[in-house]
Design a protein around this nucleic acid. Structure first.
Length: 456
DNA sequence: TTTTGAGTTGTTCGA
DNA sequence: GTCGAACAACTCAAA
């Protein structure tokens, strides 16, 4: 009798067992698999407590699906993998491909150290780098044509859930589940594959068909809220796409999935844009240095109710509504004249769903330095946005108790009312109309030089 | 090679 | 309150 043939399944951003091509490949390649997650010190250091708490829960959930066989290891990737390969006499390491700068570089380093990775699948329906212009085989820089080509390219059907997963039994030292508590006063969404599927079903029944309008209303549960599940790979976008039809609402949701893929593609093709301006001339613009106003933004004390509600939602839930992400980003960049990276870093610390591509390029879109040729005049008005997308003020009241006593017609502009500040709400740190003009003026300064008028 | 039309999510102003 | 026009110039995609 020969020794069992074992393969390692290295989980990273794919914490599920359904529709998991790499897991299926690992199962097919051997008699037993060694499921492992390696706690990455570098990622732990930059992740805030809410994302870590979520990850801890997600690992527990994955472990349950794997009959308590998940190896949760601390240490250097290369050393951990080498040790496991030697101990279990494993010949291969299976992974889902990672494309963003950090993950791709880490994997390359592992391979350079002599550990070959067998890559199957990725966190995307269409892997970054695959969608190219037919005319010259270069990547798209504009979303809409990318979207058309992405649809045309198509994607696989969801893979089946494995019938049975035979795993090795981990040793006592292999079960280093982190003890990351949910911080006090924080309420984060339940993690794990089961929760992801549950949420997807709930959204299909209650939000998807009204997604067109519902997704913009901050006060209601009108978005999919699948971002954290997608980030950790508890559900795959393929699974979502497979259930979508051709209605307008479904198409809008499909486009949101495509945005995630587009930004992953853009970052893959421009790896420096995780921290640097996609449009280089924006690096030349005049910006202010972070000061007390930046601190007020972070804690939700800008004096603009819609902005403050959103910033406090982020601190409490590790999540922010898509509409308000744009509003607070616009406020940081165009009202406070700070560089987008400062805001992106704050998001990186607090978002449970933090994704480097979506985050960096979402910020760059608002800043005007991203792929979209942003009209220079696109400056969000924090008051008007609040009135439009939180008409009766429910969202604001939920996160800003100082404004609870104000009516729908008062809550967006407390400074206009005698009792607006009676519960200790902050005064506005800047005047929006003034800063809007200032922002437009600074943008004007980096415009390409016009040709000289020969008559001048 | 040249030309043409278009580019996620907005705001303000004046009729 | 509602509505349409104006708000730059530039780059990209495709014909």
């Amino acid at each position: 009798m020969s020794a069992p043939n074992r393969s390692i399944m290295w989980f990273r951003r794919d914490l599920r067992i359904s529709d998991h091509p790499a897991l299926l490949a690992a199962i097919e390649s051997g008699d037993e698999i060694v499921p492992v997650f390696i706690l990455d010190k570098k990622l732990i250091d930059i992740a805030g407590s809410k994302r870590l708490a979520y990850l801890g829960q997600s690992l527990r959930s994955l472990d349950e699906s794997l009959n308590n066989s998940l190896h949760v290891m601390i240490g250097d990737h290369i050393e951990v993998l080498r040790e496991l390969m030697a101990r279990y006499n494993a010949t291969s390491v299976h992974v889902s491909t990672e494309f963003e700068p950090y993950g791709a570089a880490r994997d390359a380093k592992v391979e350079a150290a002599g550990i070959p990775l067998i890559r199957t699948g990725s966190p995307y329906a269409v892997a970054p780098g695959r969608v190219l212009k037919p005319s010259d085989s270069t990547p798209y820089k504009v979303y809409t044509p990318y979207y058309r080509a992405w649809c045309l390219h198509g994607w696989r059907k969801p893979a089946l859930k494995p019938q049975a997963i035979k795993t090795v039994t981990p040793g006592a030292n292999d079960r280093n589940f982190p003890d990351w508590p949910t911080p006090e006063n924080a309420v984060i969404t339940p993690a794990g594959e089961k929760a992801a599927v549950q949420r997807w079903k709930y959204f299909q029944a209650n939000g998807l068909d009204s997604y067109d309008e519902g997704r913009n209303l901050a006060g209601i549960d009108g978005t999919s809220k699948l971002s954290a599940h997608l980030k950790w790979g508890e559900i795959h976008p393929r699974t979502l796409l497979a259930s979508l039809g051709e209605s307008k609402a479904h198409d809008t949701f499909r486009k949101e999935i495509a945005w995630r893929e587009f930004y992953a593609d853009v970052l893959f093709n421009n790896p420096h844009t995780d921290k640097n301006y996609y449009s280089a001339k924006f690096a030349e613009m005049r910006y202010d240095k972070p000061d007390k106003k930046f601190e007020a933004w972070k804690v939700g004390e800008t004096g603009y109710p819609f902005v403050d509600a959103a910033m406090r939602q982020l601190l409490r839930e590790g999540w922010m509504h898509n509409r308000t992400r744009m509003v607070v980003a616009s406020f940081l960049v165009k009202d406070l004249h700070l560089e987008w990276q400062l805001g992106a870093l704050h998001f990186e610390e607090h978002l449970v769903d933090f994704d480097v591509a979506s985050n960096a390029h979402g910020w760059q879109w608002t800043a005007g330095s991203g792929t979209d040729a942003s009209p220079y005049y696109r400056v969000f008005n924090p008051i008007e946005q609040g009135k439009r997308f939180d008409e009766n003020g429910d969202y604001i009241r939920r996160y800003v108790p100082e404004l609870e006593h104000l009516s729908a017609s008062e809550i967006h502009e407390p400074w206009l009312f005698l009792n607006g500040y009676s519960n200790g709400y902050s005064e506005r740190i800047v005047d929006h109309a003034t800063e809007r003009l200032e922002s437009l003026a600074r943008l004007q300064e980096i415009k390409a030089d016009k040709p000289q008028d020969p008559r001048a």
